[in-house]
Design a protein around this nucleic acid. Structure first.
Lengths: 239, 239
DNA sequence: TGACCCCAGATGTCAGACCTTTTACGGTCA
DNA sequence: TGACCGTAAAAGGTCTGACATCTGGGGTCA
């Protein structure tokens, strides 16, 4: 054992220049000094301001771009602009992350179905209280398509749509943001109920009942029907 | 009005080369062809494989790096390696995203407190059923520190710790992943209950009661106490 | 045997040139 | 006057080639 002990989790003391540039720009955005829509200095200006080469600046900007913090436009009125974070980006990120984590890190179908139930039952309750006419119309159409669609994959998409609209009707963007990736990952990776007798008929039936409760504004019924529905789905898929 | 209509949301048809390279590598990772720990070809090899310059390759890798899909190491045994996505990274991403969205996009304190209640009440129930001795010890220490700590900021950190451990004790990584950023954003941006008479005493009291229920494995009590606690907090902060 | 040095291979950084996209400007012509 | 068009300018996108720096391993030598 030499004089300098090697740590269990080594960190390099000197961060790469592109990392430092990215960090500084990022903290300007997070602190609110740069706000959505603001234009960052041009790459050439950043070169002189940071005293690094253009490649370094560009690598820093690329890192920020892929985090959806900024975006670039070409042309004379172009440049790098601070992005407005929006729910869709967050959902997309979560979808890929959950997809990669599923099966490892102790993240299994069970966890996803459990989280789904935790989120979706209260969402159904809120949906019954807050749904707009647009949501109701969306649910009606989803139900119609669900019954009409042929083929396994197509039905699944419609099922997801129905559940998603219910959550959206709760009018809390956080709930939509968290459930949407769950639905997609479950759909993409796990749900394969080909063998279950009467599966589609029961889904249609329960969706219809949930819709009725939401439409009538019956919060308790909506929550309870959704709870029953999801608990049955868990039984089906958690074998 | 000329012949070619300008779309409201213009998209460039031709994606930049670095974007295409990043997309291809990303889909290799998402499809599972490249798995956590695998080494990507060296930058020089990627140059020949994709037929683009090294700067382009590096910009693509930087984009993947900042999405936590890969990481790089220098030196002769270095290279670019596929990362194992972990919950902490996702939480960190969510924290910055929620922080940037809060106040805009219709994401307000109300939504965060509501989502928190939706997630945390069932978490308390599960915690009472699943908590390990380590969790209980963590809660004991958090409670002790909470009572002993002086100063507003310090108490808030301890409050957050207590709530976080309760959620962790539910043993569903998705719940921890979603609540942690919520706690931090709320703490950083909103919670300022300086004026409330007897605030700290009541928090301590209710935390103690929740702990007792979790310790005794009384799921119903844990859920109900947490619900009361959070509903009171909502009243305090939603003025 | 252990301390040291040096080499190889990978990422990190730089400089400078040129390409492509996009808008603004100004001139031409009906 | 107004529609059209061409060109300049500014910004990001790409390429090339060189050098710097880090890191592990293997060889050398006391």
């Amino acid at each position: 054992m030499t004089g300098t002990e090697r740590p269990a989790l080594p960190v390099s003391r000197v961060l790469p220049a592109y990392q430092q540039v990215a960090d500084q720009l990022r903290s300007l955005i997070l602190s609110g000094e740069l706000r959505a829509g603001d234009r960052l200095p041009s790459e050439t200006e950043l070169v002189t301001q940071f005293g690094v080469s253009r490649s370094t600046v560009r690598e820093a900007l690329r890192a920020l771009t892929s985090r959806d913090l900024v975006h670039t436009r070409r042309g004379v009125t172009g440049g790098t602009f601070v992005s407005a974070v929006d729910a869709r980006q967050v959902s997309a990120y979560l979808e890929t992350s959950l997809g990669l984590m599923s099966g490892r890190d102790g993240l299994g179908v069970h966890d996803m179905l459990e989280a789904r139930e935790i989120l979706e039952v209260p969402s159904a309750r809120l949906a019954a209280e807050r749904r707009s006419e647009a949501h109701l119309e969306g649910l009606r159409q989803a139900l119609r398509r669900e019954v009409a669609t042929e083929g396994r994959q197509g039905r699944f998409v419609e099922h997801r749509t129905f559940h998603q609209i219910v959550v959206d009707a709760a009018q809390n963007p956080l709930l939509s943001m968290m459930t949407e990736p769950l639905f997609r990952v479950l759909e993409a990776q796990f749900l394969r109920p080909e063998g279950i007798e009467g599966y589609y008929a029961r889904v249609d039936e329960e969706h219809t009942a949930i819709f009725a409760a939401v439409e009538q504004g019956d919060a308790d019924a909506a929550a309870s029907l959704m709870a029953t529905h999801l608990r049955w789905l868990r039984e089906v898929y958690e074998v």
